[in-house]
């Protein structure tokens, strides 16, 4: 646990020292929201919902892609000597979850200001955001570990991620539709269980498969 905290601290330090990377992602979100707003101005709630999650999807891929790609192979090898690889992966997943959650909140705030805020049930929306961010973080962190090994990382990251993220994305969009009051369904507990189950499956697979990814 101590190691994970230290690794987390390292991630945060790295991020803040190269402030341009973090700033770049936030600017990416703001510009994207503004472009979406300019293109569509006022949209009905169902479209707002889809647009918001698409912004989240693209921003997340861009935010997470650098978690393995930005570090050179030899530096990663050095890290794996210092700490168990599984813990390095865990700290990166935790860090990315927090980053995506922050990104989601900022995107929500910014999009509410320009595009209006149709959310009725704030608690449920926040829950969707938390579960969505953790799901995105797990899947994208692992995919970025794979993509970092290849030559054409940025494109690979996107094409490998899209089919994998579909189950999480559609469930999260459904939950968020409920929080917007677009539809009513009292059995959304199953959706939350589904999301938690997917997150658990992905997390388990990630740890089983990670040894085959980092060892060269």
């Amino acid at each position: 646990m101590n190691i994970v905290l230290k690794l987390l601290r390292k991630e945060f330090l790295l991020e803040f020292r190269q402030g341009y990377a973090l700033g770049g992602i936030f600017l990416y979100v703001f510009s994207m929201i503004f472009v979406v707003y300019i293109a569509s101005v006022k949209v009905p709630a169902p479209v707002w919902n889809v647009l918001f999650w698409l912004i989240m999807l693209f921003a997340s891929i861009n935010a997470v892609v650098k978690s393995f790609v930005s570090e050179s192979g030899s530096r990663q090898l050095y890290y794996y000597q210092l700490a168990p690889p599984a813990l390095i992966l865990l700290s990166k997943i935790l860090y990315n979850t927090l980053l995506l959650l922050l990104l989601g909140l900022i995107a929500f705030g910014a999009y509410s200001v320009v595009g209006g805020n149709p959310v009725r049930d704030n608690g449920l929306f926040l829950l969707a955001l938390v579960l969505g961010s953790s799901g995105f973080a797990i899947a994208f962190t692992f995919i970025s570990a794979i993509a970092a090994k290849a030559n054409n990382s940025a494109t690979l990251m996107a094409i490998l991620s899209f089919p994998v993220i579909i189950p999480i994305l559609v469930t999260v969009i459904r939950l968020s539709r409920l929080s917007l009051g677009i539809m009513t369904d009292t059995t959304y507990g199953i959706d939350i269980t589904n999301l938690l189950a997917i997150d658990a499956i992905l997390l388990t697979l990630t740890f089983i498969l990670f040894p085959y990814v980092w060892k060269d």
């Binding site: 794979i146 089919p163 589904n194 499956i201």
Partner: peptide, 23 residues
């Protein structure tokens, strides 16, 4: 790495079977 992705991605097809009927 392709083998890793194969296992990872195929596993996400299974939850889809349970989720999509709810949409």
């Amino acid at each position: 790495l392709a083998a890793v992705y194969n296992v990872f991605a195929f596993s996400t097809l299974i939850p889809l079977l349970y989720i999509v009927p709810r949409l």
